[in-house]
Nucleic acid binder design. Structure first.
Lengths: 253, 253
DNA sequence: CATAAGATTCGATAATGCCGAATGGCCTGA
DNA sequence: TCAGGCCATTCGGCATTATCGAATCTTATG
């Protein structure tokens, strides 16, 4: 781990979390000398990863990071393979569809297929949601025991709503249930009025690479069997395209 | 400029350009020792900016870059102010609307309002297009003389179609025309069958921060006066919301 | 207008990253 | 199945390089 690069990435990290910060604020959060941070910031700035708002006051992320992010999406085979199946799934269920990958303790949406009712909806690609409070997150974690353990070790599970599962033992039991029927369920655990259904996606190396699922309004809950089946089928189909030997693939250990 | 951070960003840059590369390929492109690149890569990887595809073969960009990119969009006032006006502009003209910012020699789309005819269109947020071959790019460059000069100094203007302007003198004349009526025009200079109209957006510090414009199919070209007026009005309105003292603001020097 | 807070520059120090060589793992071809 | 070569990875010594503290300049504030 090379020190200055690590520090530079941490700078990006605090700017990601706090949006606008002055040099000394960044230095304080990182417990570094302001002059040290200054050198890092100027390097990041020269490449457009960071920019200072008019008149040398505060710093924020720059446009170059967006370009990087877009290239990431382009190279993600999970995403390209999901595209058609997500469309199909949205049509057959009538709900919005999301495909996501796991970050250390969040799920990031890499594809969002809007509800097919034609209403105006925000694109959600790139947003992150807590892994433990989403169907997508549970679907992935159930088949990624190492990362599930890391999530617990990282600290207490944050409560989002009345129904968020925060007890580690209960969460492990929940993951067992997910494995039992290869389908993750979430009921108002992150957002009131919203439920979700998701299934894991595997690749040729037999590891989970993400999950696909639908977002269902509480009013239309519980979902009909046809919907759970469709979600499973989409996940299975994408996994097959990615070269997975079967579905679901049991976790390594 | 701190060396190792600079090198790390270059690593991200080549991965951005080439998508999948092995360690030695990266080292070769950067003219560095493989072991040097290894240290950098491992640091980037620890933060999720880079990941190696299954079984330690090639490297590519990781999910963390997408999260960064999304935060950039969130913090961009230009984008949030554009949202409603872009919708309005799409409705009144019937065309797709784009808002963009300038990168060293490209324009990056930060908002894309699809054509309101309800057809299926790819979201284009995050894509980049050559600045000199787009209406958005010309609109910005006409009011950013420094960056226009830098673009020319950087190398020859790349030809995309038969009509791409590649001659520096001609390009400068084109920018003069843009300034004359505060509107940039592009006719099949980047993509055959596509034309564009764009106008610059300024902020409170009187500098161009981006541009907004419409994409018009060749079949519907030339655009009616109502369209050129609507584009100008949108750019003026957004500039006003950003605190610009007038519109258009003449370039500094 | 005076004061202070913060951004930026500069220079000395030693810590740090860099490179070359050695190791180990994987795939290829025989 | 085994041998060979290629490439990723590890290690250690050296010198470059980043780091920090203090000084300077700039911008906000009372």
């Amino acid at each position: 781990m090379i020190q200055s690069v690590d520090r530079a990435i941490r700078v990006l990290g605090v700017l990601q979390a706090e949006r606008h910060l002055s040099l000394s604020e960044i230095a304080a959060r990182l417990e570094l000398a302001p002059s040290t941070v200054h050198g890092i910031i100027k390097t990041l700035q020269a490449h457009g990863l960071v920019l200072q708002e008019q008149g040398s006051a505060r710093y924020r992320l720059g446009p170059a990071v967006l370009k990087l992010g877009n290239v990431y999406l382009d190279t993600l085979e999970l995403r390209s393979r999901s595209l058609t199946w997500a469309g199909e799934l949205a049509r057959s269920t009538g709900h919005a569809v999301r495909t996501g990958v796991l970050l250390p303790d969040e799920v990031m949406i890499v594809h969002h297929e809007p509800r097919p009712d034609g209403s105006r909806q925000m694109p959600e690609v790139g947003i992150v949601i807590p892994a433990h409070a989403s169907a997508l997150g549970k679907a992935i974690l159930a088949y990624a025991p190492d990362q599930a353990r890391a999530l617990e070790a990282d600290g207490p599970l944050r409560s989002m709503t009345r129904d968020t599962v925060t007890d580690p033992a209960e969460f492990r039991a929940e993951l067992d249930r997910v494995r039992a029927d290869a389908l993750a369920v979430e009921q108002e655990e992150a957002v009131i009025g919203e439920c979700g259904l998701a299934a894991p996606i595997f690749d040729s190396s037999r590891t989970v690479v993400g999950a696909i699922g639908v977002v269902i309004p509480m009013l239309e809950w519980p979902a009909p069997d046809a919907a759970t089946g469709a979600v499973r089928e989409a996940a299975r189909a994408i996994s097959r395209e990615l070269g997975a030997p079967g579905w679901p693939v049991p976790p390594g250990r």
